[in-house]
């Protein structure tokens, strides 16, 4: 009886898978062993199924995303992108023509510039005149008031009469008013206020 060879290692089985996938024939010892040994044959079948299912899933996944329509669009996009490859770049005649035109334009714009300057000057003069007029109109009433009301202190007094009695009663009224305003309104402080000498009282004593 022919002694059975040892089982094939995983690495060897994988080599067999790669060989078979590339379309080549398996090496005879490995092929014979796989034919004879059920265990190795089952392991090989399991590994092949695993690899194939991985590939099948991956391809199905990608093919579902990259549909024929999408691939067609992609191809159009590539064609559009390579359209400019190898063609000389289009030179835009920017410097000479534009600069010349700019110079010409600046000369022709000399007159409008003067017009703009004159308009600005006119505006400035107008604003300045307007401001000075307003300033004068504000000053005039003040000056007239000053001339009419040269002695403002006398004006209210003149309405009350010029007699010395009236003047004294006015002074008393005003001093009472000041007193009332100077005194503290808080009841607790009024006692302290009574003790405190006031400037007015000292002045009256003199």
């Amino acid at each position: 009886m022919k002694p059975r060879a040892r089982h094939l290692h995983d690495e060897r089985l994988f080599e067999c898978y790669l060989t078979e996938r590339s379309g080549d024939a398996l090496d005879p010892p490995a092929a014979e062993h796989l034919a004879d040994c059920d265990a190795c044959s089952a392991r090989y079948a399991e590994m092949t199924a695993f690899m194939e299912s991985l590939r099948r899933d991956g391809d199905a996944d990608a093919d579902a995303v990259f549909t024929p329509e999408r691939l067609r669009l992609q191809q159009q996009q590539i064609a559009r992108r390579i359209e400019h490859v190898g063609r000389p770049a289009r030179v835009i005649s920017f410097p000479s023509r534009i600069v010349r035109r700019t110079i010409g334009a600046s000369q022709s714009r000399t007159a409008p510039r003067w017009v703009a300057a004159a308009a600005a000057a006119g505006l400035f003069v107008g604003v300045a005149l307007g401001a000075s007029y307003e300033w004068n109109t504000r000053r005039i009433p003040v000056a007239s008031f000053a001339t009419h009301d040269a002695n403002p202190r006398l004006a209210p007094v003149a309405t009350r009469g010029d007699s010395p009695v009236d003047v004294a009663s006015d002074d008393a009224f005003l001093s009472d008013l000041e007193l009332a305003l100077e005194r503290p309104h808080t009841r607790e402080l009024q006692a302290f206020d009574a003790f405190t000498p006031h400037v007015r009282e000292i002045r009256d004593q003199r």
């Binding site: 990608a62 691939l71 359209e83 190898g86």
Partner: peptide, 25 residues
């Protein structure tokens, strides 16, 4: 160049699907 672009389209068709699979994975 125009002829080259036309022929390149054929090359794209040949490799596009495989390239998309690899890139997507």
């Amino acid at each position: 160049m125009d002829e080259a672009r036309d022929r390149f389209g054929e090359l794209v068709t040949l490799h596009q699907r495989r390239a998309s699979r690899i890139a997507y994975q």
